[in-house]
Design a protein around this nucleic acid. Structure first.
Lengths: 183, 183, 183, 183
DNA sequence: CTCTAATCGAGACGGTACGTCGCGTCTTACG
DNA sequence: CGTAAGACGCGACGTACCGTCTCGATTAGAG
């Protein structure tokens, strides 16, 4: 069903895909669709959450080690090797849902790591990085002339990560250092 | 008609507003609507473009003088004095269209000012700043506890403008300086 | 639309006729059906009421003159000349609705003529005569060997009219006579 | 299962009762229902036939003795002592099936007793009496003010039985007498 | 001043998709 | 083996908008 949905998403924008289309393509009955998902968006969310989870699995280890550059490269490499899928997800009306899922998962990660004393509200930091990452990837996949993975990863790190998450991280580390000193 | 549309947007999300709703609220016939706009989105684009034009009129003078901070403050001040309108525009499904209009007008401005040799593609710079500005404003208007205009303007400048447009501007100025020297 | 409905009723029983069938046969859109009738039964009622009205127009003059035999003959003659239509109406699930309509119109007529002091409640008298008339006609139209109009009319009068309406009528006339005498 | 069905019939009309309702109320699985009855109507027929058989057992002895009045009283007395059950059967959409069952059983009885030479076709005689009896009982059970058993039995005999069965019976007896004389 | 042409209303209509209901078939697992 | 549980395909339902069309009524400009 997800496969069929993604196939259709490659063919036409989201709002021109009817549930009947998805059912027909999936080889299931129209009614059966509702036995799995109450609405088209529900299916989309499931698909999006699935893909987002894969992304975070690739980035999290590097992020844990504060190696943001590797995290960015990992992300870009993965997306590059699934250009078609991600073109589909980031264009044609599905981007909003994908963004929601990314935001959700990123917020969860951020809530365990960010420092609320930072001058930039953590919610905004997450929003900025997620939104810009989506725009960056979307732009990348739209380009006709190939742009190297490194180039994208660099942009992502310098423009997106550094001004938001990284700044936050530095602050956090300093706080940790202070606490360590005292003890 | 635009007034009626905005009224309805305050009451329910965009996709629950039918053309018949708009017509009824406007006091015109359903058919007459089509004499002005071929589709609901067309009307929305008109409304959005109108508001965006006002924004740019406020920001452009300061931007011309490279005074980004003033530009940001002007933007925020204006939005703050029309909180209801902008809450409506930035939530409830209209944000995407508004973003498009902003992007369009910002791109036009940027095309006359940015330097294509910059390491950051100008298209991306514009996209980042527009998108993040929207997210920032949207977040701002969502907050229950009031956040000061200055705070927002500062965030906008430090996180959004500096890493993108300003960096570009510096590069541009250096290039101009070089050209001036030679001549 | 009524024609199409009757055509379909000749082909298959009522509950196997879907609204979509009727719409298709009528050459109108499925949705348009609902713009005329909220439900299939509504259409059926309309059709039935129409036919019943014709019946009563044929019988009423004779009934006014207390000439029940002529009324019966008129009824049977008319039905006989529209055997196909009445076969359709009296078999195949439409009979219940037709009965309702007949009951309604007969009750209206009866309420202006019957005498409530009669030992047989007028409601019952009407019910009996209507129901039996339907059964009689239905039986008649089912017969393979033709049965003459006179025979049917005789049965109707002797079995149905006489024991109910006529008895009532006699009583009423006697009452009238008394009143006349006094004055 | 029949109990569950009758319970449901008291609650809502026949066509709003789904097989799944009956199964749930009966405490059996939906699929198991089909092991007993191929369709909802089948179950209804079974239930109806059962009740009709009880009726005829009460009436037959008196009918054998040509004591129609006692037969009628027996019928009404029985129905009166099961008002709820019979209200359910005679209203709410089950009446048609009940009528069928009554007709079937009455026809069987009549075929052994009636005289085909009668001027009233026996099939019609049976139909009239059965149909009117149902209408009479249905009317009776609908009344808010109680109507005595005797009153109903009298109506039934005078209006229904006399003009049909009894007339037939007299004719039959005369025929028998003739045959007896000759032999 | 009147006639005509554009404009608008009201509403019928065909059409697509929606989400729901009940049907009857089928498979799987349990006792 | 028979039953329970539940997934499934199917057909119909009634609803919501869509966009097109026609028909009058209004009004404004041209003769």
């Amino acid at each position: 069903m997800r496969t069929a949905f993604l196939e259709l998403l490659e063919e036409k924008p989201l709002d021109q895909i009817s549930i009947r289309d998805i059912a027909a393509r999936s080889g299931i009955s129209y009614v059966t669709f509702f036995r799995h998902h109450p609405t088209k968006e529900s299916l989309l969310h499931t698909v999006a959450a699935e893909q987002v989870r894969r992304l975070s699995e690739l980035m999290l280890p590097a992020l844990e080690a504060d190696d943001t550059r590797t995290a960015c490269v990992n992300l870009c490499t993965y997306v590059d090797s699934h250009r078609k899928l991600w073109s589909t997800l980031l264009t044609g009306g599905a981007a909003a849902v994908l963004r929601e899922e990314l935001l959700k998962q990123a917020s969860e990660v951020a809530s365990t790591r960010s420092n609320p004393n930072n001058w930039l509200p953590p919610e905004l930091a997450v929003t900025f990085s997620v939104t810009c990452t989506i725009e960056l990837l979307s732009w990348w996949l739209r380009q006709k002339r190939p742009v190297s993975i490194e180039r994208i990863a660099e942009i992502q790190e310098r423009i997106i990560i550094n001004p938001t998450v990284a700044a936050d991280r530095h602050w956090t580390q300093r706080a940790r250092a202070k606490r360590t000193k005292r003890s």
